[in-house]
Design a binder for these strands. Structure first.
Lengths: 185, 185
DNA sequence: AGTTTCGGTCTACAAGCGTTGACTGAAACT
DNA sequence: AGTTTCAGTCAACGCTTGTAGACCGAAACT
């Protein structure tokens, strides 16, 4: 037996799940309210009534969960960054993927991603030694973005290895960016 | 005095330039034939007659110019990759930017980019030492993609430095990926 | 000079979109 | 039992889009 409140939550949940998947697969513009409703076994009118507009539905579906705070010595920072990146390479965070894919054609999604990344970059930059801390934390962000996009969105050749294999190559790069050390010639 | 052939070429050129700019700024779906025509001081019907369809116009506007071949010793490879990346960070290659922005919502554009990158990755992987050459060349691709996207498309914080400053940080990473050396502890 | 070609403009159409509002039936309340 | 609420359905709207085709006028040819 299902109460009305349960029913409503279940339907909202099915819609949100379908929206995340479709936004993540096709981006904002190519995903239609009609397609979301169909995928959720529901109806376009209902989607509108529950979420107000396509824009608001997207905002709810593509909210990026914040990473934990970054803190400690450079060594600890490097480990935290590595762990965060590993988990992003491991599973496919559908909400973040929707935001990532949409950011290139949807300015609001771009703001969402930029804000989420800027927060982490500021934390890191404040703790790093050296004059070019801001620049280095920016490159860390670019490397992170590049790896996640290349693996999940573009499916670049050679990036389909296990997260551990990937991090065996990318981990030292992060260490180097954090500590500012130079590679052996 | 302008002959008809000149006139036609000029018009086609204005359309193509406007198309590149708009596709690069807004992506494929949000750029309309009407907007391109207006920006080029022309007419939607003409755009269709000259280029056949929006799809074909995009294919012409977003064709990625191939990089030069990569060859030589690991040291030489690193230098060639660094130079290629520097130039991509310096100016804004509007055609490639259009393809890059569109690739996230337009599967054909994604193929275009993936193909262009795979070609370079294969060249690099074949010349690198070590078992994980394919993986390392993939990470080089991801780093390149991440830097270009972060700078030109996302405008990430801290990435608005000069290409030289950026490469002072990113260059050693490429060296490390190419040579397989480990950073100093 | 007369005819053909063709660059350019304008109008129209069919399809797909987000969104709205009326309607139905069953659960929830009094 | 009677009334209210609300999840779900359906049909329609206004708008924008890519695209097609008719039309005009000047350059190019004979």
């Amino acid at each position: 037996m299902t109460t009305r409140l349960e029913q409503r939550r279940q339907t909202e949940d099915r819609i949100l799940t379908a929206a995340r998947r479709l936004f993540g697969e096709q981006g904002f513009d190519r995903t239609t309210i009609r397609a979301i409703a169909t995928a959720a076994g529901s109806d376009p009118g209902l989607v509108m009534r529950y979420f107000g507009s396509k824009e608001k539905l997207f905002a709810q579906a593509a909210a990026i969960p914040a990473d934990g705070p970054i803190d400690g010595t450079p060594d600890q920072i490097a480990r935290q960054l590595t762990e965060a990146l590993t988990s992003k390479l491991a599973d496919e965070p559908t909400a973040a993927l929707a935001a990532l894919r949409a950011m290139f054609s949807h300015p609001e999604a771009a703001d969402e991603v930029r804000t989420a990344m800027a927060a982490q970059q500021r934390q890191v930059a404040a703790l790093l030694p050296g004059e070019d801390a801001v620049l280095r934390s920016g490159v860390i962000g670019a490397l992170t973005l590049g790896l996640v996009i290349s693996r999940h969105l573009v499916r670049l050749d050679g990036l389909d290895a296990s997260p551990e294999e990937l991090m065996a190559v990318a981990g030292p790069l992060i260490d180097e960016l954090v500590t500012g050390s130079r590679p052996i010639e």
